[in-house]
Structure formats: structure tokens, C-alpha cells
């Protein structure tokens, strides 16, 4: 069980283990999240990172941003690579060490789906952090299975017609001990979840909503506001699943209509004809309502 004091868990960590000077866009949710994750995990950590935005903006030879060990090989295999690192530490009787596999939504839920499922099922002591920016941003904003209904990407130019894959619940159904969702606006909550996860032995999954100003079509200064609206509308429920039970659901203080969230982002602009919402907006509201009901937000 989780034994750290709540004071330790709720303390915001600032260690600059993911250094400034990397090449992310201004307002990048993933860069912010990666720093929060590294600082929460601390020095005794190995970052295993999948190919994608994070890897590209943080690890050009010879100028990586990481002050903790960093391992990258390919796009779809980071869960298996992290499994191998963990197996090596076990076999060599080294450690303990925090092993954190990290990837974007495509590397996690699409091309890396088999690999992450294997890692969960085998029970490796690895925390997987998914930075969810809801499309393939590194290659120029193409649709992934995390792209929400209605969102425009370069490969869904008329708007995405399918709903987002629910990986946190799929992860939980592997029977792993800890699953959580978080957003980058709430430092304390995000870092508490990283620290909580790292106290638990076995596979853990942390799903972080990480807005992408470039792909979502908003200015960089709106990253935090958009995260807050994602929660206030019910579109991104924030919760934990501890040993299979949903816990610590973040309650919505003041419920907002999805329109407030959609109107801030260029990727949804086509859903408003001369300012009037088209029928897809009602379906997005329905998705939010279902989340609110399902998780009792």
C-alpha cells in the first residue's frame, strides 16, 4: 500500500531534471508535463522515451535536455524496452530505480498498443506515462485513436468521425494496480500521481492531457485554460483507479458547456458555421455528459 506522508506526496518538486533549452513549441503541454514527471520522480530514475515530439525536441545529439538517464530506440516498442531495462536491473540485482516509459498518444495507443499491453500483462515494475495531445503532432497533426470526435486533423480534414479510445480503462482492465489521469495545469495533482505510482510495485499507467497549441489551434498562453475547460466540461475526467476501484475523482465545481472548450481551438472551428454550432457539437456534449454520469464528476 501507499505509505508516503501526504506532505511528501503533495509537495511540488522543482529540480530541473528536464532542463530548459529544449526545442518544444511555446505553450507545449507535453514539455511542461515531461518536466513535472521528471522532477516528481527524482534523480534515481531512468526515462525510456518513444519516438515522437518529446523525443525529438529533447534529445538531439549532442544536446539532450535530460539530466536523468535517457533511453530511446523506436516508436512502438518503448514498453518492451522498459521491460528489458527492468529485467536487467532484476537480473543484475541492481536498484531500486524508477523506470518510466513515456510516449505520445500514437506511440502508446496505436502503434505501441501491443507492446504496452504486453508490459501490463507481464507485471513489470514500470510506470508508463502517456502524453495525450490527441493526434500525431510530430508528423504534422494526423489523426490517432485518441483524436476526439469532431476534431479536425490533417487526415480528418472534415472532422474526426470516431470517438476517442479509452486507454485508462483498458489499462485498468489488465488488472494493474494503479491507473490515473491528470492534466498539466494542476502541478500538484500531476506530481502527486507520479509519486504515488512510483511507490507501487508493478505496472502503472498515467494518462496526461497535454494540449498542443500547434495541432489544436490555440495560442500557447491558453494551454492551462484549455486543460481547465477540458475538466470543467467533463470531456477529460480526472480520476485514479487503485487496484481496480475508481478513486479520487475530481469533482467539477462549476460545469461548463463543451462549446466553451471547443470555441477556443482552431481544430473545432468548422463546428461553428457563422458562430452557430452544427449538430456534431451536440454529440460532443453527449460524450461529456456520459463522462459526467459514468465517473460521477
Amino acid at each position: 500500500m501507499i505509505t508516503a506522508s501526504s506532505e511528501d506526496l503533495y509537495k511540488v518538486e522543482k529540480k530541473d531534471l528536464f532542463a530548459s533549452g529544449h526545442r518544444a513549441c511555446g505553450g507545449c503541454g507535453q514539455a511542461l508535463a515531461a518536466r513535472l514527471v521528471a522532477d516528481a520522480a527524482g534523480e534515481n530514475t531512468i526515462a525510456c522515451v518513444a519516438t515522437g515530439c518529446l523525443e525529438i525536441f529533447s534529445s538531439p545529439y549532442p544536446d539532450p535536455s535530460w539530466r536523468i538517464p535517457f533511453l530511446h530506440s523506436l516508436f512502438e516498442n518503448i514498453s518492451a524496452v522498459a521491460s528489458g531495462v527492468e529485467a536487467a536491473y532484476k537480473a543484475l540485482k541492481k536498484g531500486p530505480v524508477n523506470i518510466i516509459a513515456q510516449g505520445g498518444d500514437g506511440g502508446t495507443a496505436d502503434i505501441g498498443f501491443q507492446s504496452i499491453s504486453g508490459m501490463f500483462e507481464r507485471g513489470h515494475n514500470v510506470l508508463y506515462v502517456c502524453y495525450d495531445n490527441e493526434a500525431y503532432m510530430n508528423t504534422g497533426v494526423q489523426r490517432s485513436s485518441f483524436t476526439p470526435f469532431g476534431a479536425k486533423t490533417t487526415t480528418t480534414p472534415m472532422g474526426n468521425t470516431t470517438r476517442k479510445k479509452n486507454l485508462p480503462l483498458i489499462a485498468a482492465d489488465h488488472g494493474i494496480p494503479y491507473v490515473a489521469t491528470a492534466t498539466v495545469d494542476d502541478f500538484r495533482d500531476l506530481q502527486r500521481k507520479v509519486k504515488t505510482a512510483l511507490l507501487i510495485n508493478g505496472p502503472k499507467y498515467l494518462h496526461i492531457l497535454a494540449p498542443c497549441p500547434l495541432g489544436w489551434g490555440h495560442t500557447g498562453d491558453l494551454t492551462v485554460a484549455i486543460c481547465r475547460l477540458a475538466k470543467a466540461t467533463g470531456l477529460f475526467p480526472v480520476y485514479e483507479i487503485i487496484n481496480g476501484k475508481v478513486a479520487n475523482v475530481l469533482k467539477i465545481q462549476e460545469k461548463k458547456p463543451v462549446e466553451d472548450y471547443l470555441r477556443l481551438q482552431g481544430r473545432y472551428r468548422h463546428l461553428f458555421k457563422k458562430g452557430v454550432p452544427v449538430k456534431e457539437v451536440a454529440e460532443i456534449q453527449e460524450i461529456a455528459n456520459q463522462n459526467i454520469e459514468r465517473f460521477n464528476l
Binding site: A80, G84, Y89
Partner: peptide
């Protein structure tokens, strides 16, 4: 593992560690 792809990736990670 669940595939040869992951078998190779596991030994990659293990060797790097």
C-alpha cells in the same frame, strides 16, 4: 513476450541497462 518485435526490444532495453 507477445511478439518477436517485443522480444528484440526487451533484449535491447536489457542490454542498454
Amino acid at each position: 513476450v507477445e511478439s518477436e518485435f517485443s522480444a528484440a526490444s526487451v533484449v535491447l532495453g536489457a542490454s542498454a541497462a
